[in-house]
Design a protein around this nucleic acid. Structure first.
Lengths: 306, 306
DNA sequence: CGGAATCACTAGATCGTGCAAGTAGTCGGC
DNA sequence: GCCGACTACTTGCACGATCTAGTGATTCCG
């Protein structure tokens, strides 16, 4: 049943060359010339025997495995991260690497453990990667977080709103703070009054009160959610307060989750296809050129809430 | 900057023994006796030098790495999978293994690639693992999918409903079909009329019509969602049809996502803590006893929809 | 036509761990 | 005092791929 794994030695024996030659052919090593017939024989034998390189042995020799680790926090799960992961995974696969996802924010301990256990070729921290301005410096990647946030804010402004807020969760991550900052900058560029942060607890945990008090102090007409969940919280709380949406309060989400279509009123939100971004990250890790990859622009999915 | 990695040989040299002895001490190999002082010296040297075992080399030697792969489909993301992953991850970490998550349904190709690249100690297919009856045979794990589904159905029945349906997505996975089957069995055990499947497209894509037609043909009074998203779809479509919830139609979700609290009316749903299940899977993979692990029972989160 | 250069390969070291087999040294029993 | 058993180690190989340092054969050039 469980046949022994096929090694380079088997391929070498089958094609009548040394094991080193097999290596040269299979990796087509540029420093080594191999005659066409030999190459042919080796390739054929490899295929016939069903030879597959042993990643572990290769990793041992090369010093690191062809694995890339992505650290992602649960709070960032959504449409964006899904398309990002999909692009990243696909691009890595194309280059003979594989993607592996670690959920939850990693501790120092788990990180070093991972480091020693799998010796990954690279580690991507999703939040850091997305929020950093590094993309801008990196050959014209202008469609990062700042641009996406600007699209969200811009949609509110296009509908006549000038006094805006952004709704954030109570345990705001660094990522949330970065988004808030970008939203502020976007508002400033459009000569609006300062954009206020609204820390909105869950509706079951004082969210309704929090929204009421916030609106008394800062009478905004539109609220941008940190993500769809926050926007939906606003919607729910607004309903409890008897506020009509969008007439009395406009709300826009971010990341176009499936749930945005299922509220009433339906939530207008921003859809971002991060496939290209994922591919770009892959190329960056592998040290390849990525200038042919262009990002799809952020798209506003218009529903009823603004 | 980048110091060379500390190997067993370094530890051996530092403690004045052979490399093999270091191995025996570190893995406290039962077939080998080591004197207390020597053991002490080796342990100390290892600690001082900051020795960490090289997972790659170990994997090479042992034939497989101490990595466990979890395959999970995006449609199963939610509270359940999160707690499952968390329990699984934690339990594996305790036993010096690490968890790695592959998203999307794996192709045969990507599976074998993974197999050869990381040579995992085990692969868990989340959907199969959750839906199979294997848990039942496995020493009394009675709180699997069938039980959870029965809780969902039971809640509707407790509220006087007898004519039930389950809402499923159009591209019903095997997992969805299993859940439907369990719901049917639960209804049958309670002597209810047969539970009908409702294939409900997205509200923007004919869902409203589908619900109207379904209710004409099969006048049910309560609908159980395959997951929260499907339940929220029902809610949205019911609203479009002018149906009052829960008076004219009761709806219950499954998996208690954050979004269940944010609809109006708030969605009643089933919360399942799968931490113990995750731990159980970990033990199963590692061949350890898991009889001390008991599952938290499924809990109905009561809101306004039923 | 002889030496150098090039070609097409091969032998073998290497990565770090785990473990089988071997080997001193000590102890006990007869 | 000698054999066997036991303790406490050491030597060295295996895992499979990569890659350096050769090696014999052919080609090239003056």
């Amino acid at each position: 049943m469980s046949e022994r794994r096929v090694t380079m030695r088997d391929v070498a024996a089958a094609s009548g060359v040394s094991q080193a030659t097999v290596g040269f052919v299979l990796n087509n090593t540029p420093t080594q010339t191999i005659s066409a017939p030999t190459r042919e024989r080796v390739l054929r034998a490899a295929k016939e025997l069903g030879y597959v390189v042993d990643g572990i042995a290769r990793a041992m020799r090369e010093g690191s495995s062809r694995i890339v680790v992505l650290n992602i926090d649960a709070s960032l799960e959504g449409n964006y991260s899904r398309s990002y992961i999909s692009g990243l995974d696909d691009e890595l696969a194309k280059n003979d690497h594989i993607l592996v996802v670690k959920h939850g924010h990693p501790t120092k301990q788990s990180t070093t453990q991972l480091q020693h256990m799998v010796a990954p070729r690279g580690v991507i921290d999703f939040a850091a990667n997305y929020s950093s301005g590094r993309e801008l410096a990196d050959g014209g990647w202008t469609d990062g977080l700042a641009a996406h946030t600007a699209v969200q804010v811009g949609h509110l402004v296009d509908h006549g709103h000038t006094r805006l807020a952004m709704a954030l969760p109570e345990d705001a991550t660094r990522f949330a703070r970065v988004r808030l900052e970008f939203a502020r900058q976007a508002a400033e560029r459009l000569d609006l009054p300062p954009l206020a942060p609204l820390v909105l607890p869950h509706p079951d945990a004082g969210g309704v009160e929090a929204l009421r008090e916030f609106l008394l102090e800062a009478p905004v007409t539109a609220i941008a959610g940190f993500n769809d969940e926050m926007a939906l919280r606003v919607l729910k709380c607004a309903e409890s307060l008897g506020l009509r949406v969008p007439e009395e309060l406009a709300v826009i989400g971010y990341d176009a989750t499936e749930y945005a279509a299922l509220s009433s009123p339906g939530l207008t939100t921003v859809h971002i296809d991060a496939d290209a971004h994922g591919r770009r990250s892959a190329r960056a890790i592998l040290g390849l050129d990525a200038s042919d990859l262009v990002a799809a622009p952020a798209l506003v999915v218009v529903r009823d809430s603004v």
